[in-house]
Computed example of a mutant assay.
Amino acid sequence: MNNNLVLQTDFGLSDGAVSAMYGVAISVNPGIRIFDLTHDIPQYNIWEGSYRLYQTVAYWPEGTVFVSVVDPGVGSERRSIVAKTALGQYIVTPDNGTLTHIKSCIGIEEVRMIDESVNRLPNSGESYTFHGRDVYAYTGARLSSNIITFEQVGPEVPVDSVIELPKDEPKITNQVLTGNIDILDVRFGNLWTNIDRKLLKDLAADYGDSFEVTIENDTRQVYKNIMTYGRTFADIHLGEPLLYVNSLDKIGVAINQGSFAKAYHIETGASWKISIRKIPKIVYN
């Protein structure tokens, strides 16, 4: 381990919950290095917690320990686990779907169930509502500080038994590329899809080409319009929409200096679909 502990929660920073997790980790090891992934996951939104791990984990060194707590089932029979990724990082989390994107996009090498008889904050056994502090931060700090080994977390469980959320794969049918709106680029309101750049290239896409883009959810069509595939936002005029390649090499949808999500009230997850069809390039005189 490398003494790095990275925390993600849906707790926000308006009360002492995150600070308590810091305190537990520092009490385990005063020299531990603690970083925040985010504490602004929308309440109970396991899907977004899963995606933010995928967005971040691969860029951290081998041996980094992540603690991810988006846990609407806290205190229930859901398992508490630590997963070792195929890249060598560790994720301490409830087994509720939080590892969906890591499992499918990065890979999980091994999983262990946390043995709370030894990996739980002392004198916390009567509390069942703050496992983020009492189990996950405590176990994560002990693991990242080499106080325990991965094997001492608890018994191994099959990787195939890890809970996954429904997650469709993008595909091309009759020259129409379909996928999901996986997440938002929150601050700017851009849409990030699960469509890989290489898959868009299978439609013979080049920068400057025009595409018909349709977005719908389970109940209705929300958006349909023609937009340009651009290399940068500077490739289009202010206020125009575009397709672009985001920082994860996936296709994004944006409005130049505007929020696409707010403009069209678009949300994210498995129920939000996007379709992309190449059309003849539009030339404005």
Rank of each mutant, 00 (worst) to 15 (best):
D71C: 05
S76H: 02
I34T: 07
T64W: 11
D36F: 08
V74E: 02
Y51I: 12
T64Y: 11
S27I: 00
V18Q: 01
P61E: 14
V82L: 10
D71H: 14
G49H: 01
V65H: 03
I26P: 00
V82F: 10
L37E: 07
N29Q: 03
R52T: 15
G16N: 11
G23Y: 10
G31D: 15
S80G: 07
D15N: 13
A58F: 12
R78N: 12
Q43F: 10
P30S: 12
I34S: 01
H39S: 08
G31W: 02
W47I: 08
V57Q: 01
R79E: 15
P61I: 11
R33V: 10
A25H: 10
G73D: 13
G73R: 02
I32A: 03
G49Q: 01
Y22S: 00
Y54I: 02
V74N: 01
V67Q: 11
N45S: 14
R79H: 11
E77T: 13
N45Q: 07
N45H: 14
A17Y: 15
A20W: 01
I32D: 03
G31T: 06
S68C: 12
A20V: 08
I26E: 05
A58P: 00
S76P: 03
Q43Y: 06
W60H: 10
R79C: 12
A17G: 00
Y44F: 15
A17F: 15
I32Y: 01
D15W: 08
T64P: 11
N45I: 03
V65G: 07
N45P: 02
V18W: 05
R33G: 00
T64D: 14
R79N: 13
T38W: 04
V57G: 01
V65C: 10
V57P: 05
I41V: 15
Y59I: 05
R79W: 12
A25N: 04
S80Q: 05
I34R: 00
V18S: 02
Y22N: 09
S50H: 02
I41S: 06
V28W: 09
P30K: 08
F66N: 05
S80Y: 09
I46R: 07
I34N: 00
V18R: 00
A25Q: 10
Y44K: 03
Q55R: 14
N29V: 10
S80W: 03
Y22D: 09
V28K: 02
R78M: 04
I41M: 09
A17L: 08
Y22L: 13
V74F: 06
T56F: 04
V67G: 09
A20H: 09
S19K: 01
V70Q: 08
Q43W: 04
Y22A: 02
G16A: 07
G75Y: 04
L53S: 03
S19N: 06
E48G: 00
G49A: 02
Y54N: 04
W47T: 06
S50F: 06
V67C: 13
F66T: 07
T64K: 10
T38I: 13
S68Q: 11
P72E: 04
G73L: 04
T38C: 05
L53M: 13
